[in-house]
Design a protein around this nucleic acid. Structure first.
Length: 541
DNA sequence: ACAGACCGCGCC
DNA sequence: AAAGGGCGCGGTCTGT
């Protein structure tokens, strides 16, 4: 069953079957109506934008299983057709469907009233139905510019991509609502231990102030601000040490009495500014960290978050993420996801053999790097992400098919072409305007572009896999008490009652296996997702 | 005073 | 040993 939803006013709107000839209906209580129909039929809900509708449903305790987000779908389909410049809004899509020029873009995302359905400019049912039909047609007969596809893209792939992106938006909304368990008391204690007591009126905590004074004195520069790279560079120059930048990596190689306190200052200052008391006050409430997730926000299909830096939770504060009493956290990340995706896409048997029995980097190290796992890892990552490394020749001999795929992706990009992920997510075209560039500039731009497309194939296909896995896991967990509470590229955290932990762990493993089949088909090596049950996130790995 | 660029660093 | 992809964010610096 397929039902279009078009809100018209706070919690009111129209509904229309799209797969049966039935008259449209209206309701003045969308949440209740949707909840009732959901329980009876579990339809696929078709709406313009998940964020503006589902947030309110979730807040009202209503959840749905399946959806089709027209904006997400439009974005994927426009990308596939190489039409990145065009608006993916339903209004624009509707206008295109009627052969009209799209309306001017509304101002960037107006803040939505948390208790109301956002109805400003909501497209009518007619638009929902029409755009959905156009999208179904586009999926059934994909047409787009020539592009390098490691796997052939057809209706099945595009449909799966859209379904996963739509489910991703559902999951994103639910996860923002549920939140990640976060113990403010533990976090606060951790901060006080590291920084000294919380300063009363802002300002530097005691330990930072102390370090700042040590640095200033070691460089004979009173009042030196360690937060200012320019000041630090000048002070070192005065002391006879010329530095190209103040990166920690670089500083570690310098011998000078100011270095040690400066490095400690940098680390603690980072903790204070990025995940200190201010962060705690603005992002943690009622024992939960609630960032705003945005599914498939990055061109590669990776998720983003707005506010709170949820995808960069430093290891140093993960001890504050603790399961509720009687509950556990199931922490699962895909081991070496990207090289495994490369092995799968290229069908490289030797690489598959290395990955099949566990640690791919260790196996590669045994074969070609005298057991040096670190060197093997860096070599392979470097090959995937772009660089010319000494290890490349070794890898070329060892995994010829995998390296050939990477090379083809890079050559395509250098020549100005497009590449697509396993599910057909298409990279944006390069920036126009090669005229007027010097020879050097255009060579550099071409190389940059090659690195981007080389990485895109892998990163976007890995995001495809993770997105499908998350959608499947979400469905498997529905009906149990276990809940998704965190997702970060290739890692999930599920918060579950202890007695449901085994079952949820199994759901995680199954979701990964099924995602592998759906996204990559037969693979030369599995892409396992191994859950660990812990009380505290810091014990996850 | 404010906006946007740049820096540096956290995560994958 | 070295350094290539994608982000978000808070700080400083620069231009208006």
């Amino acid at each position: 069953m397929l039902i279009a939803v078009a809100p018209t006013s706070p919690n009111a709107g129209g509904l229309q079957r799209l797969d049966a000839d039935e008259p449209a209906s209206t309701t003045d209580d969308l949440a209740t109506t949707i909840a009732r129909v959901e329980n009876e039929h579990h339809p696929r809900w078709v709406w313009a934008d998940t964020g503006s509708i589902y947030r309110n449903l979730t807040a009202a305790g209503v959840r749905v299983q399946r959806s089709h987000d027209l904006t997400m779908a439009e974005r994927a389909l426009l990308g596939y057709s190489g039409r990145w410049g065009e608006s993916a809004s339903v209004a624009a899509a509707w206008a295109r469907a009627r052969g009209q020029s799209p309306p001017p873009e509304p101002p960037m995302s107006e803040p939505t009233q948390p208790t109301l359905f956002s109805t400003a400019g909501s497209p009518p049912l007619e638009a929902i139905a029409r755009v959905h039909q156009e999208q179904q047609d586009a999926v059934a007969r994909p047409h787009g510019p020539e592009a390098f596809e490691p796997r052939p893209i057809g209706p099945r792939q595009l449909d799966l991509l859209i379904t996963a992106d739509s489910a991703g938006e559902l999951a994103a909304t639910e996860m923002s609502h549920v939140g990640l368990p976060w113990r403010a008391d533990i976090h606060d204690r951790l901060l006080a231990d590291a920084l000294g007591p919380r300063p009363r009126h802002g300002g530097r905590p005691a330990k930072l102030q102390d370090l700042a004074e040590q640095i200033a004195s070691a460089l004979h520069t009173p009042l030196l601000n360690p937060d200012s790279p320019a000041e630090v560079l000048r002070a070192f120059a005065k002391a006879g040490v010329t530095l190209p930048s103040t990166r920690a990596r670089l500083l570690k190689q310098i011998e000078h009495p100011a270095i040690e306190p400066l490095l400690r200052y940098k680390a603690l200052s980072r903790l204070h500014t990025a995940n200190g008391w201010a962060w705690l006050a603005s992002w943690v409430r009622d024992g939960r960290f609630r960032p705003e997730y945005v599914a498939a926000a990055v061109v590669s299909g990776r998720w983003a978050t707005r506010g709170g830096g949820a995808l960069q939770i430093p290891h140093s504060v993960r001890s504050a993420v603790v399961a509720d009493p009687g509950w556990v956290l199931l922490v699962a990340d895909a081991q070496q996801l990207e090289p495994r995706v490369l092995a799968a896409l290229s069908g490289d048997r030797a690489m598959g053999e290395a990955a099949r029995h566990g640690d791919l980097y260790a196996a590669l190290a045994e074969q070609s790097f005298n057991g040096d796992r670190k060197a093997a890892k860096v070599g392979l990552i470097s090959a995937m992400y772009g660089g010319a490394s000494p290890a490349k020749a070794i890898l070329q001999r060892r995994y010829p098919q995998a390296l050939a795929l990477l090379e083809q992706a890079a050559r395509t990009g250098e020549a100005g072409g497009l590449v697509r992920s396993a599910l057909g997510r298409t990279c944006p075209p390069g920036t126009a305007g090669w005229e007027g560039l010097s020879e050097d500039q255009s060579v550099r731009r071409s190389r940059d572009r090659g690195r981007f497309t080389r990485n895109f194939i892998i990163q976007a296909s890995a995001a495809d896999w993770a997105g499908v896995m998350l959608a499947l896991l979400r469905r498997r967990l529905s009906g149990s008490k276990a809940e998704l509470v965190f997702f970060c590229h290739d890692e999930v955290v599920v918060h579950a009652p202890a007695e449901e932990a085994e079952r949820a762990a199994d759901d995680i493993r199954q979701a990964a296996a099924e995602a592998t089949r759906l996204v990559l088909g037969e693979v030369v090596a599995p892409l396992p997702l191994a859950p660990t049950a812990v009380r505290c996130y810091a014990d996850g790995k």
